Simulated assay, not measured.
Amino acid sequence: MDPIRRSEHKIPQAGTLDRDVWVRDLARSMCDAVLDVDELEMRRLEQFLCGLMHYLLGKVHDRPEFRREEAVWRGKHGLLPLMGGMMDRYRNMPRKPGSEPVRQWLNDMFEEATDSKYNPVCVKAFRLLARLEHDDLENMLHNASCVVLLSLGQKIPVD
């Protein structure tokens, strides 16, 4: 069964191969909905979505002060809207000459993930993706937003 559509199951424990595989499978199942993306862009999308999922799981589910019970995946109604909201914030941010809010966002998440010792997958993803050219970053974020919208069963807005 599609891991995104499952209604409820335990999220694998942080720091395990099971968690890494589970997050990667989620990202891949989300990206399967996108057909018009070349192989390089698809890898970037998967890398970004995996990094963002690991980041949010580290920030929300894995911190000891927040653990009251096992973390549970509640289908597409938990993590995905949060991811979409974060991406929309940076996609719709006014662009000032010389500013690159997407790159800054990736660098900020990289620093927080490094300092807080989140999963190394997100640390590496953010570090590598922040090195992309400006247009590639903007394109990746646009495509990632579309992937999340499709995964939530929403329509992609036409610009």
Rank of each mutant, 00 (worst) to 15 (best):
126 F>R: 00
3 P>F: 06
27 A>C: 05
62 D>A: 12
15 G>S: 10
144 A>S: 12
103 R>L: 03
75 G>F: 02
40 L>N: 08
61 H>Q: 06
101 P>I: 03
133 E>P: 01
45 L>Y: 01
46 E>P: 04
67 R>D: 03
105 W>Q: 09
79 L>A: 03
115 D>I: 11
105 W>S: 04
14 A>M: 06
120 P>D: 08
57 L>V: 01
50 C>K: 02
19 R>N: 02
157 P>T: 12
101 P>Y: 11
25 D>Y: 08
124 K>S: 15
7 S>E: 14
88 D>M: 10
142 H>N: 11
55 Y>H: 08
128 L>A: 09
108 D>H: 06
139 N>Y: 07
108 D>T: 13
98 G>R: 13
142 H>W: 15
50 C>I: 03
80 L>T: 00
142 H>T: 13
14 A>I: 08
92 N>H: 14
87 M>S: 08
18 D>W: 10
123 V>G: 01
11 I>L: 10
70 E>T: 13
53 M>V: 00
142 H>C: 14
138 E>R: 07
32 D>Y: 14
43 R>G: 02
157 P>K: 09
109 M>W: 02
158 V>E: 10
155 K>Q: 12
71 A>R: 04
18 D>F: 15
5 R>D: 08
7 S>H: 11
75 G>T: 07
129 L>T: 05
102 V>Y: 02
96 K>D: 11
58 G>F: 06
24 R>L: 13
152 L>Y: 04
60 V>R: 13
46 E>D: 12
113 A>Y: 00
50 C>N: 01
82 L>A: 10
126 F>Q: 01
81 P>M: 07
2 D>T: 05
134 H>A: 14
38 D>K: 11
61 H>S: 11
5 R>G: 02
91 R>K: 05
113 A>L: 05
3 P>M: 03
43 R>T: 08
138 E>L: 10
133 E>A: 13
91 R>W: 02
156 I>T: 10
88 D>Y: 07
99 S>N: 10
62 D>T: 01
70 E>F: 10
154 Q>H: 13
96 K>H: 06
140 M>R: 04
118 Y>S: 02
48 F>I: 00
102 V>W: 03
151 S>G: 12
150 L>E: 14
5 R>E: 11
52 L>Q: 03
66 F>N: 15
28 R>G: 08
108 D>A: 10
80 L>K: 01
34 V>F: 11
61 H>M: 07
48 F>N: 04
99 S>A: 13
1 M>Y: 11
46 E>K: 05
45 L>V: 01
29 S>H: 12
147 V>I: 14
49 L>G: 01
60 V>C: 07
26 L>D: 00
114 T>P: 00
39 E>L: 14
125 A>S: 15
33 A>F: 07
78 G>K: 06
18 D>L: 12
111 E>I: 14
147 V>A: 14
43 R>V: 07
69 E>I: 09
77 H>M: 09
56 L>F: 00
19 R>G: 04
20 D>N: 13
50 C>D: 05
137 L>D: 03
21 V>M: 14
39 E>D: 09
137 L>G: 01
26 L>A: 01
94 P>A: 09
150 L>G: 05
67 R>T: 10
115 D>V: 15
82 L>W: 03
156 I>P: 04
93 M>D: 06
12 P>V: 08
61 H>R: 06
46 E>L: 14
146 C>R: 09
158 V>S: 11
43 R>Y: 06
104 Q>Y: 09
13 Q>D: 14
126 F>I: 03
98 G>M: 03
19 R>M: 09
151 S>V: 03
